[in-house]
């Protein structure tokens, strides 16, 4: 952070930004495209029942998912996933901030939290089903019970590690507790919180699928298992493809949000590397 330049760092011109986006897209799509071609050629040369070619799968994809099925299976899954993620983030950050700011509470809870974090959430599914039945709430609870831990523990750690000089600065200027939370503690912890959210997202997607595989009558996980059991192989693969696409979409949305929230953090890193 100690950089002795007399000038102000300028932002990159727009034209170059677009060019770099184009280049990135080329790099990002190059390998998937190549893999598709190799796969297509391979499946044409030696067709196999369980590994249909890409064209067949894409055909199944269009037939299966585009249409009413989208509302029967995909929308409920996405709704559970979205609700699970929102709840995990809200509860994780709120509880993490409280626990991270109060020392005795942190010391009291941390070993217990580490224990709960270590429990694989799928084993909770039968228990939750017993308590709540086969409902959407069951699935959301399973998602939250897994996705919350990285967010919660990272928030605790980030809040705890607030810089002493920054805190003293805030105190000396008489900045109130609430303002300190809003303008100091949460922004300072935000790089760590975002790292936790990133982990939480992938856990949430996994748990969404698993919770639907166990006990459900709708949803992506349920539908993929159904295809599997009925030897609808191309359809099954198309479901897996859809899951992958949802994962990529989640990561992209996260990336956009992260770049906005942590632009200062990436800026510092860029200046330090320069």
């Amino acid at each position: 952070m100690t950089l002795y330049t007399g000038t102000v760092v300028t932002v990159r011109p727009k034209s170059r930004v677009w060019r770099s986006i184009g280049e990135n897209a080329l790099y990002a799509l190059g390998l998937p495209f190549l893999l598709l071609v190799v796969w297509g050629v391979w499946s044409t040369i030696s067709p196999q029942k369980f590994f249909p070619g890409p064209i067949e799968i894409i055909q199944a994809f269009v037939d299966t998912w585009i249409g009413p099925q989208f509302f029967v299976d995909v929308v409920p899954s996405l709704a559970r996933l979205g609700l699970g993620i929102v709840l995990s983030i809200a509860i994780g950050i709120t509880a993490g901030t409280v626990i991270g700011s109060i020392r005795w509470l942190r010391e009291l809870l941390e070993p217990t939290l580490e224990f709960f974090r270590a429990i694989p959430p799928p084993v909770l599914i039968p228990v939750v089903v017993l308590l709540l039945g086969i409902t959407d709430a069951t699935k959301v609870i399973v998602i939250v019970s897994g996705a919350i831990w990285p967010i919660l523990l990272n928030t605790i750690e980030g809040v705890r590690a607030t810089d002493a000089v920054m805190t003293e600065t805030a105190r000396s200027f008489g900045i109130t507790r609430w303002q300190r939370l809003r303008y100091l503690v949460l922004p300072a912890a935000s790089p760590q919180i975002m790292a936790g959210v990133r982990q939480g997202l992938s856990v949430a997607l996994i748990l969404m699928v698993i919770s639907e595989m166990f006990s459900s009558s709708s949803g992506l996980g349920y539908r993929i298992t159904y295809f599997q059991r009925n030897y609808l192989i191309a359809e099954m693969w198309s479901g897996i493809l859809l899951l992958g696409l949802i994962g990529v979409l989640l990561a992209t949305i996260f990336g956009i949000v992260e770049r906005r929230v942590l632009s200062w953090y990436h800026g510092i890193k860029e200046v330090e590397r320069a």
Binding site: V165, M166, S172, Y183
Partner: peptide, 29 residues
């Protein structure tokens, strides 16, 4: 009615706020 300037400016200014935002923050309340 007291203001402090610390030795460690890098840790006393908030990097997520602009220069304007940093100067503004203590005035908010």
């Amino acid at each position: 009615s007291m203001a402090l300037v610390f030795q460690e400016y890098g840790r006393s200014l908030y990097p997520w706020l602009t220069v304007h935002g940093n100067v503004e923050l203590p005035l908010k309340h």
